[in-house]
Amino acid sequence: MSVDLQTVKRVARLARIAVSEEDAERMTGELNAILGFVEQLNQVDVSGVEPMTSVIPMAMKKRPDVVTDGSKAADIVANAPATEENFFLVPKVVE
């Protein structure tokens, strides 16, 4: 399988990365080189093989459903580019 310029632009949109026409053209070549390389996986007979879900077999750890953390809103917003009264500020999303 290979990608064309339109697909690259669509994927960039899905990934929320702005790309120029020039970027998109360069990426088309690079992505096709990588997709060409991974193509060989189709040669493998995987009939009856389950997809891996956990590399080391283990039961998922659970913890008691109690509050262990919190009351540190200031810490959470401390690294944000724009905040007001412990809220993250974003450009207007609702008209």
Binding site: T7, V8, L14, A15, M27, L35, V46, M52, V55
Partner: peptide, 27 residues
Amino acid sequence: RRIMIGTYVLSAGYYDAYYLQAQKVRN
């Protein structure tokens, strides 16, 4: 480049052909 590849292989219609196949090969 890697975000783009990742987004593509997880996108609708390609998930089985790429990601699921790779996780089977991984096993």
